[in-house]
Amino acid sequence: MQLIECPWCGPRDEIEFRYGGQAGIAYPKDPAALSDEEWAGYVFMRDNPRGWFHERWFHVHGCRTWFSVRRHTVTHEIGRDPGSPRREEFG
C-alpha cells in the first residue's frame, strides 16, 4: 500500500487513488494533421521505464484532483513533481 502525496489532501493510501498512466502526453492540437503513425503513437505508445517515471494519479476518493508525481518503478519511491498536472504538448 503506497503512500501518495495528494497536493490538496496530503499523504493518503494508494487505495484512494486511480492511476492515470504516463504524464506529459498532451492531446495533439490538430489530430487531423497527424499521420496514422503519429496518431497511433499518441493513442497507444507509452514509456515503460525501469526507474524514475513521470506519471499521473487521480485522487478519486478524495478531492478529485488530477496531479502528477515522479515515482521509481523499482523502489516505489515517490518524489514531488514540480510540474503541473496539465499535460504537456505532444511532440
Binding site: 498532451a26 492531446y27 487521480f58 478519486v60 478529485r64 488530477w66 498536472p85 496539465r86 499535460r87
Partner: peptide, 17 residues
C-alpha cells in the same frame, strides 16, 4: 457512471483547464 465522471474530470483538469 464513476468512470465517465472521472473521465470528464480528467480531460477538464489535464487538457482544458
Amino acid at each position: 457512471a464513476a468512470a465517465v465522471l472521472d473521465r470528464l474530470e480528467e480531460w477538464r483538469q489535464t487538457e482544458w483547464p
